[in-house]
């Protein structure tokens, strides 16, 4: 997986209680499907991002399990209701178990 940090956008870092917050996040990853071949005709080994999860504090709020039909540099957008403040923690893991993490702090207005 890339060494560049994830790019994350949060619609509102100071939402009212219960407000719907939108998150957009993207990482750099080739999402190698295993179907492509290199110049010598040998298949490139498969390695895709297999799991993304987002937690707010201790609560799991969103899970994404991409397949090989997901585009490279996977982009994900989701929403949730801000029931409490806390840290929004996002984690990516690929099939070689390389992980990336991003954090955003939410405080209720």
């Amino acid at each position: 997986m890339s060494v560049k940090p994830p790019r994350v956008w949060v619609s509102n870092a100071k939402p009212a209680r219960g407000e719907i917050v939108r998150v957009r996040a993207q990482i750099e990853h080739a999402m190698e499907s295993g179907l492509r071949v290199d110049g010598d005709g040998k298949p490139r080994p498969r390695n895709i991002v297999r799991r993304f999860e987002a937690r707010l504090g201790a609560n799991l709020i969103f899970v994404w399990e991409p397949g090989i039909s997901i585009a490279q540099n996977p982009y994900i957008e989701f929403t949730f209701a801000a029931r409490e403040g806390g840290e929004l923690v996002m984690q990516w893991a690929d099939e070689k178990d390389v992980t990336l993490e991003a954090r955003k702090t939410l405080t209720l207005a």
């Binding site: 899970v63 994900i76 957008e77 989701f78 929403t79």
Partner: peptide, 23 residues
């Protein structure tokens, strides 16, 4: 590989909306 992706939500999510990009 027809199954492009799976999203999971919890009672805590409070919404059910997602976007991604497909090949």
């Amino acid at each position: 590989s027809p199954l492009a992706c799976r999203f999971q939500f919890t009672p805590f999510t409070g919404s059910a909306e997602a976007a991604a990009r497909l090949r």
